[in-house]
Design a binder for these strands. Structure first.
Lengths: 226, 226
DNA sequence: ATTTGTGAATTACTTCACAGCA
DNA sequence: TGCTGTGAAGTAATTCACAAAT
């Protein structure tokens, strides 16, 4: 059964399933059951079946899912059939670590454009990639067809940078700055806030035994509260 | 009304509230209403009141919350009344960026111990902090009273490192390795998986206008699926 | 007049239970 | 038998709506 509206939690689980299925496929495994994916990921098998069923029935009853077909299907749903170019703004400690990390990873999301505000950084190279002035974002992004961006600038600059990205036609942003970004409703923002993540740990250090929730990463409320 | 069991989603929102309230307090603001916090964070004001009411009633009707008192209360709930020492394992690109990032941040979560497996890194310093051999984790952590750790090692080494951390008495782990860590039920794991975060963006780039979920960062299912 | 605190209603997500197919 | 797909039941989280307090 194909649903029109896919829950956010489901979308966030899909890349996990893809990783598992893809690994198995490369190991030569032909089919995989929801129980096997459950074992590796920690999600329940029913949940995995429900998630996959949102997009139609790929499985074979009594057998499981064909790894080749399932990997293809998930990549299609996510829009990962071919490499996706990503822009990164803010080539500081964190930004450059993200770039160096990204080049070693087997993900189709590829950082291809770098921007920074500091004049002394502009023109330098990080690996093969030149660092461009952040003012050129609105012009360069459409030209290069890039619609996904990472914000790794100091909090003071984050909103300003975001406005430039939106002007450049960005549709989805991964934000490392510890601020709530204001964007139009058609732009998706996912926050990765390292301080918040660590501070949450402080609570569970003292209140153990509870956790539970699966889920994966941080969306952002769109409106400004009512 | 004081609840015994606090929802995970609430715990993940508390550090956000703390940040906002703390900022206002430093600006000399005496009281803050749930609507004002809502405006800044994007959460609804009812939700904020419900979250805070889990721990008792701090507010004054018709007025709002006293910033001083509220900040103190949230810090108490989270266990952030004094600095919390954190260990980091894996001083690669990402790990060292996290350390350099952390020293500039105004969070009470302080990275104080560094570990790495590579003999050529052991003994070197990153800022003031010496890099220790990862084998000393089980001995050093209890000695230094550290119960929170960051895993920033390659996926192959992540489970092994986690076992050492658990042996050393760690209660909460922030995991950057793209694997599901196996831990005893009293250890809390929060995953930050950069590839998954980026891959989720790919979906929303093509399916705009939806997002919605507030929430903040990645827990991990504990059991192995049933 | 304003804003908290909270039951009630609603919505979202997960788990259960099992029919249907290989 | 084994495993998928799914309606029904159950649980969790959010929003509504308003009484209580200043």
């Amino acid at each position: 059964m194909v649903q029109s509206r896919i829950p956010d939690v489901t979308v966030r689980r899909l890349p996990i399933y893809l990783r598992v299925v893809e690994t198995m496929r490369r190991q030569g495994v032909q089919t995989v059951s929801s129980q096997e994916i459950a074992r590796v990921t920690g999600f329940s098998s029913e949940q995995i079946r429900k998630d996959l069923a949102c997009f139609g029935a790929f499985g074979v009853r009594g057998v499981g899912y064909e790894t080749e077909h399932l990997a293809w299907a998930i990549r299609n749903i996510l829009g990962l059939t071919e490499p996706v170019a990503v822009a990164l703004v803010g080539v500081g400690h964190l930004g450059s670590a993200l770039v160096r990390h990204n080049v070693t990873q087997p993900t189709p999301m590829r950082i291809r454009l770098l921007f920074d505000a500091a004049p002394e950084k502009v023109g330098e190279y990080l690996g093969e990639l030149p660092i461009r002035p952040v003012s050129t974002v609105p012009a360069v992004l459409p030209q290069e067809g890039v619609q996904v961006a990472i914000v790794a600038v100091p909090p003071e600059a984050a909103q300003q940078v975001t406005d430039l990205l939106v002007e450049g036609g960005v549709r989805a942003i991964l934000n490392f700055a510890p601020v709530t970004l204001r964007v139009p409703p058609y732009v998706y923002v996912q926050n990765v806030d390292l301080n918040l993540a660590l501070e949450t740990l402080a609570y569970y250090r003292n209140n153990p035994g509870v956790p539970g929730g699966p889920s994966l990463l941080a969306t952002q409320e769109m409106d400004g509260g009512k």
